[in-house]
Simulated scan of single mutants.
Amino acid sequence: MALNNIEQLLEKYDNAETTLAEEAQIRAYFEQEDVPAHLESYKKLFQYVSHTKQEQFTKDVPLQPKRTIVYRWISVAAVAVLMLGAYFQVNQMNQKITLDDLSHEQLMAYNQTMEVFNLVSSKLNQGTENLEALNLVSSKLNEGAENLNHLNEFNKATNKIIKNK
Rank of each mutant, 00 (worst) to 15 (best):
residue 149 N to K: 15
residue 117 F to D: 09
residue 105 E to W: 05
residue 31 E to C: 15
residue 47 Q to I: 12
residue 130 N to S: 15
residue 32 Q to K: 14
residue 9 L to W: 00
residue 100 D to S: 03
residue 131 L to E: 04
residue 5 N to T: 15
residue 124 L to H: 04
residue 115 E to M: 05
residue 161 I to C: 06
residue 153 E to Q: 11
residue 128 T to G: 04
residue 6 I to F: 01
residue 98 T to I: 04
residue 49 V to G: 02
residue 81 V to A: 10
residue 65 P to E: 03
residue 128 T to C: 03
residue 63 L to I: 12
residue 19 T to F: 03
residue 90 V to L: 11
residue 161 I to K: 10
residue 59 K to T: 03
residue 58 T to K: 08
residue 33 E to R: 05
residue 109 A to C: 01
residue 67 R to D: 01
residue 75 S to W: 06
residue 123 K to G: 07
residue 62 P to F: 11
residue 63 L to M: 01
residue 125 N to H: 13
residue 32 Q to V: 07
residue 19 T to H: 06
residue 160 K to L: 08
residue 118 N to Y: 03
residue 138 S to I: 02
residue 58 T to E: 13
residue 94 N to I: 10
residue 149 N to W: 07
residue 23 E to Y: 01
residue 118 N to Q: 10
residue 136 L to V: 02
residue 92 Q to P: 02
residue 66 K to M: 12
residue 76 V to A: 05
residue 138 S to L: 10
residue 64 Q to M: 13
residue 41 S to P: 01
residue 132 E to T: 04
residue 34 D to K: 11
residue 103 S to V: 10
residue 81 V to H: 00
residue 146 E to I: 07
residue 60 D to R: 11
residue 27 R to V: 07
residue 164 N to A: 14
residue 138 S to N: 05
residue 77 A to V: 05
residue 54 Q to L: 05
residue 24 A to H: 09
residue 91 N to H: 07
residue 164 N to M: 09
residue 113 T to A: 12
residue 151 L to A: 07
residue 150 H to I: 11
residue 67 R to M: 06
residue 91 N to E: 13
residue 48 Y to A: 10
residue 93 M to V: 07
residue 55 E to D: 07
residue 24 A to Q: 10
residue 3 L to T: 05
residue 158 T to C: 01
residue 80 A to Y: 01
residue 51 H to C: 10
residue 154 F to Q: 12
residue 65 P to A: 08
residue 46 F to S: 00
residue 137 V to N: 13
residue 100 D to P: 00
residue 162 I to Q: 08
residue 12 K to H: 03
residue 122 S to K: 07
residue 16 A to Q: 08
residue 24 A to K: 13
residue 21 A to L: 09
residue 75 S to N: 12
residue 150 H to K: 15
residue 132 E to C: 06
residue 115 E to I: 03
residue 161 I to A: 14
residue 89 Q to H: 07
residue 89 Q to D: 09
residue 111 N to W: 03
residue 68 T to P: 00
residue 140 K to Y: 04
residue 99 L to T: 07
residue 61 V to K: 07
residue 8 Q to V: 04
residue 51 H to V: 08
residue 77 A to D: 06
residue 97 I to L: 06
residue 149 N to F: 04
residue 157 A to R: 05
residue 113 T to K: 14
residue 20 L to I: 13
residue 124 L to F: 00
residue 76 V to N: 04
residue 40 E to G: 02
residue 129 E to A: 08
residue 64 Q to V: 12
residue 140 K to N: 02
residue 123 K to W: 11
residue 102 L to S: 01
residue 54 Q to T: 06
residue 146 E to Y: 10
residue 45 L to R: 14
residue 119 L to G: 04
residue 77 A to I: 05
residue 51 H to A: 14
residue 13 Y to Q: 04
residue 104 H to Q: 14
residue 93 M to L: 13
residue 84 L to E: 08
residue 133 A to D: 11
residue 83 M to V: 12
residue 94 N to V: 00
residue 81 V to K: 03
residue 131 L to M: 11
residue 152 N to R: 09
residue 11 E to F: 14
residue 65 P to W: 03
residue 9 L to D: 00
residue 112 Q to W: 11
residue 51 H to G: 15
residue 1 M to Y: 11
residue 69 I to D: 14
residue 123 K to C: 01
residue 74 I to K: 03
residue 60 D to K: 07
residue 109 A to G: 02
residue 34 D to E: 15
residue 73 W to P: 01
residue 93 M to K: 11
residue 40 E to A: 14
residue 106 Q to K: 06
residue 135 N to A: 14
residue 81 V to F: 13
residue 118 N to C: 02
